[in-house]
Simulated assay, not measured.
Amino acid sequence: MGFDDGRLLGPPDDYLRGTWENRDWRNVPGPIYGAETDNCWAGRSVAPDHIVYQDDFGSEVVFRQPQNASQVQSVLSAAWTDPFRGYACDGDNHWNLELIRTWWADRARLTEWIDKAHRTWSSSNNGAEREAAQGLRTYRHYLNTGLETYLQDYGFWLDNHRPALPQETLPDLGHHN
C-alpha cells in the first residue's frame, strides 16, 4: 500500500496500533476505526470520503468503510499520517451482528452529534472547520441513504464469512434478543 505519489506506507503494524477499547463511538462498524488518533485534522486531506473529525478532541473517525483497493489505500494513508498511531484494522475480530444492531439503534445520538458539530463548524470563520463541516454533511447524508444497507451487508459477511448472494436475505438491523 502506498500514497498515490508512490511513497510506501510500510508495515501496517508500524502505524495501525489503535485498540478496540479506545475506539470512538462515532466510527461506522467495519474493519477500520479510529481510536484516540491525533487532533491535527490531517485525515480528511488524504481520505475525505471516509474520515471526519470529532469535536471533543479533534480525533479522526472512520464514517465510511473503504469498499475497494483505492479507498483502502486512502484510509490507510490517513492512518499512516496519524502520529499517535491510533487507527486499527481489527474491527472484524470484534464486531458482530448484535453490536452492529446496538450501534445502529443509537443513530439518533449520532445524528444529534453531527447536527450540533455541523452548526458550529459551518458558521466558523476558520476554513478548516468549514471543510470539516462538509465532511459531517457527507456523513449525515450517508447515514440517511446508504449506511443501513452497508451495515446489513457487513452483518451478513460477519455471520457467514462471505458476501450475500442476490437471492439471500440480509439481516434486519432492528434489535433481536
Rank of each mutant, 00 (worst) to 15 (best):
F3W: 05
D4N: 13
D4H: 14
D5G: 09
G6P: 06
G10F: 07
P11F: 09
P12N: 08
P12L: 11
D14H: 05
D14K: 01
G18P: 00
T19D: 03
W20T: 02
R23L: 04
D24Y: 00
N27K: 04
P31S: 05
G43D: 01
P48M: 09
H50A: 03
I51V: 15
Q54G: 08
F57D: 15
F57I: 14
G58N: 13
E60L: 06
V61A: 07
F63M: 10
R64T: 00
R64P: 00
R64E: 00
P66G: 05
P66Q: 05
N68R: 04
S70C: 10
Q71H: 02
V75R: 07
A78W: 09
A79H: 06
W80N: 13
D82G: 11
P83G: 03
F84N: 14
F84V: 15
G86K: 07
Y87L: 12
Y87K: 07
A88Y: 06
C89S: 15
G91W: 15
D92H: 10
N93A: 10
N93G: 07
N96C: 14
E98M: 05
T102C: 14
W104S: 07
L110H: 15
T111M: 15
E112L: 14
I114T: 11
D115W: 11
H118C: 08
T120K: 03
W121E: 06
W121M: 08
S122W: 09
S122C: 13
S123N: 06
S124I: 00
G127Y: 14
A128E: 08
E129L: 08
R130G: 07
R130K: 13
E131W: 12
A133I: 06
L136F: 04
L143D: 06
N144Y: 04
T145C: 03
L147G: 02
L147Q: 11
Y150M: 12
L151P: 00
Q152Y: 10
Y154E: 07
L158G: 08
L158E: 11
D159N: 13
N160A: 00
H161F: 09
H161Y: 07
P163F: 01
A164P: 00
L165G: 03
T169P: 01
T169N: 02
G174E: 15
N177F: 01
N177I: 02
N177Y: 01
